[in-house]
Simulated assay, not measured.
Amino acid sequence: MTTLYLGGYTTDQPEGRSGLARVTLTDRGFGDVEPLPGPADPSWLVRPGDGPDLYAVAEGEGSQVVRVRDGEGVVASAPSGGMGPAHLALSPDGRWLVASNYVSGSVGLVSTGAGGDGDGDGGTLELVDELQLEGDGPHERQDSAHAHQAVFLDDRRLLVCDLGSDRVREVSVEEGGALRHTGDVVLPPGSGPRHLAPAPGRDDLVWVVGELDQTVHTLGRDGSGWSVTQTVTTAPEGPGPGETTTGGIVVSPDGAHVYVSTRGTDTVSVFAVGERGHLTLRQQVVVAHWPRFIGWLPGQEGRRLLVAAEKEGSVDVWAVDQGLLEETGHSLAWSAPTWVG
């Protein structure tokens, strides 16, 4: 049995609906959903381990980063360092949370109160620095910087997806807790980098999802810095009817396959990884409507893929066999899911 937590939106949902919940998954399927007390619009969660605490963004009014204790609700909070936090990343040593604020285009650094070994009383959260990004792009949604995701390469180095400027920002956490912008990786105009995933065990190869043009970019780093070495589409037959945007990305633990969801076509694309990290489409499966999030089932990474379809209101489990996806028939109905794990 696996215990999963769900995060989603409370805005425009029935009054009293919790955006945080817990559910169990067994070989027979999902159990009953148990609503949990939490903040408004916890659209992205972080599970730091097997303990009772979660970290979450409160995306709506207030723009907070919060610590939620299972069964108790919010036990600590801090400003996110901007407006509209859409993503939260925890440093490998457990000392720092980085919030990517989509609306304001800024990145906030929050201390967890833990020591360098990750230990601490877990009592307080504190915003210690914020970094304002600048830039724009040709798409109507690129009027200014829009930070969408930060990924730690190690305890100090970060890559930040800035959808608004068509750039992946290189950022470092300085000693004492300060964010420093150290460089940029320029992506094709109008691509809108949303999320990225590094190759397992490497800090010189990442794949970046272009939300606005349904693409995946392979980025490699050598002595002269980062560069885009390949761009592939996630919609080889063209966009779906209406809005079409890519969503989530995950990599298999062995680094052999990359999985990307596309909203509008409502598909998950399976890419095989070849020389220099270049991608070849192996499979594309149709999933439930608007697959905003995909992620591995905890404890079964590389074997079970979770797909959270926001507008369908469902979480589905897909089996992975030699890299390819197969339906399991396990599906959970829950309104507006944006994170599960």
Rank of each mutant, 00 (worst) to 15 (best):
D27T: 12
D27H: 07
R28V: 13
R28W: 08
F30P: 00
F30K: 00
G31S: 08
D32Q: 15
D32I: 12
V33R: 07
V33G: 05
E34C: 10
P35G: 07
P35T: 02
P35A: 01
L36S: 06
L36Q: 03
P37L: 11
P39W: 04
P39S: 02
P39F: 03
A40E: 14
A40R: 15
D41F: 05
P42F: 02
S43K: 02
L45Y: 08
L45W: 04
V46N: 01
P48L: 07
P48C: 11
G49L: 01
D50Q: 03
D50G: 02
P52S: 09
P52W: 06
Y55Q: 00
Y55L: 08
Y55P: 08
Y55W: 10
A56L: 04
A56N: 00
V57A: 06
V57M: 01
A58Q: 04
A58K: 06
A58S: 10
E61I: 13
E61M: 13
G62N: 08
S63Q: 12
S63M: 12
Q64E: 14
V65N: 06
V66H: 00
V66P: 03
R67H: 02
R69W: 12
D70A: 11
G71A: 03
G71Y: 09
G71D: 13
E72S: 14
E72F: 13
G73M: 08
V74P: 12
V74T: 13
V75T: 15
A76N: 14
A76W: 10
A76L: 12
S77T: 00
S77F: 05
A78N: 08
S80W: 05
G81E: 07
G81A: 09
M83G: 14
A86M: 10
A86F: 11
A86R: 10
H87S: 03
A89H: 02
A89D: 11
L90F: 11
L90C: 13
S91R: 10
L97A: 00
L97H: 01
V98I: 07
A99Y: 05
A99S: 03
A99L: 02
A99R: 05
S100L: 03
S100M: 05
S100T: 04
N101F: 00
V103N: 10
V103K: 07
V103F: 12
S104T: 11
S104K: 03
G105L: 02
S106A: 12
S106Q: 04
L109H: 07
V110M: 07
V110P: 09
V110I: 15
V110D: 01
S111I: 14
S111E: 15
T112Q: 06
T112G: 01
G113C: 09
G113V: 10
G113R: 02
A114Y: 13
A114R: 12
A114N: 15
G116I: 14
D117M: 09
